[in-house]
Design a protein around this nucleic acid. Sequence first.
DNA 1: CTATTTTTGATAACGTGTTATCATTATCAG
DNA 2: CTGATAATGATAACACGTTATCAAAAATAG
Lengths: 125, 125
Amino acid sequence: MQRDTSQRRAIRRALEAAGRPLGALEVLEASQADAPGLGIATVYRNIKALLKAKEISEVQLPGEPPRYEAAGKDHHHHFRCDRCEKVYELGGACLPDLKNALPRGFKVSSHEVLVHGVCAACARK
Amino acid sequence: MQRDTSQRRAIRRALEAAGRPLGALEVLEASQADAPGLGIATVYRNIKALLKAKEISEVQLPGEPPRYEAAGKDHHHHFRCDRCEKVYELGGACLPDLKNALPRGFKVSSHEVLVHGVCAACARK
DNA sequence: CTATTTTTGATAACGTGTTATCATTATCAG
DNA sequence: CTGATAATGATAACACGTTATCAAAAATAG
């Protein structure tokens, strides 16, 4: 990642502007506004480069290909809309009494929460 | 699923005995004790049949192929050991104030929690 | 501006997990 | 017990997301 290309700028910008994790195809689509003709290979290449540079981070959800979001956010969880399948960011609200729920001898290093439901945009319809 | 084969019995038994979600290969391995010569195709076939019959249910974790567990358990979450990569069942301890964390207009239908860490067996070593 | 070298886009190839195929074996109704 | 047929095991084929290949285009140093 040594040259500053319009494609990479578009991809970076799309991920920052989204405010929610995007999958590779969502990145492609969102970036094509700024970078016409952008190809999927370039998206994957740049996602990998931006991950290595820690500008973005990977968000894995059960049973789905990875999504990516701007790096450096505070601890948060995600909401996945059952209708449009978009994933949103959830601030605050974390786990309370994890320790009590654990079998003896188990040690926690991290956790993740995924909330399913219908987002505001879809509920409106 | 009309005939009662030793293979299907072995698979059912392995999933019940495990007490934790097993992946397809774990099912294969665990079942081969009771059903020598068992093949992976039969495992996949029977997993599908048992799912349809609602005897087992699918457990999806981020970035991993599905696991399966006996159906009909109470609401619970899972713990994945970073070392041995086994997944355990966690009883109790559920989310508190989900509603407050949601953006306006979002509706929750369900949620899932995954705890990462080291299991008792691995911590001992 | 030019030469060098990275990056790109199209697409073939890949890896992993799962499903289809098909000849053989096992179950079970009669 | 026997015939009909469902189920099995080996393995080829598939699906999907991702990576590799390579000629052409674009970025940067000088």
